[in-house]
């Protein structure tokens, strides 16, 4: 198990109602982590209901959902924003 800090931005943050959380996880990839997160609460499930437009950064570098989590301390999820 590893501890990772997870950050949520925009409508992910709004749906989960927290900007960050620390989780213990055995997830191998980002996709595995998301699969774990959606079981945590209905709010998490709603946030990741359609992850196709959500992007992920591992330790502040843009990555992808099949990327490995080994050695990663921070995972940030963010969607595109539209407003101007």
């Amino acid at each position: 198990m590893a501890t990772v800090e997870i950050l949520y931005f925009a409508w992910l943050r709004e749906r989960i109602d927290a900007p960050r959380e620390r989780v213990e996880t055995a997830a191998v990839t980002v996709a595995d982590l998301v699969a774990e997160l959606v079981t945590r609460s209905d709010r998490h499930a709603a946030a990741f209901a359609d992850p196709t437009s959500v992007r992920v950064a591992l330790d502040q570098v843009l990555s992808c959902f099949d990327a490995p989590l080994a050695g990663v301390a921070e995972v940030a999820f963010f969607p595109p924003m539209t407003g101007g």
Partner: peptide
């Protein structure tokens, strides 16, 4: 960076979501 446009209800505009 953002190859796909999210569904309208996922990324609401300022009028609906507030700013």
């Amino acid at each position: 960076l953002f190859p796909t446009i999210p569904a309208d209800d996922l990324a609401p505009d300022c009028a609906r979501a507030g700013v």
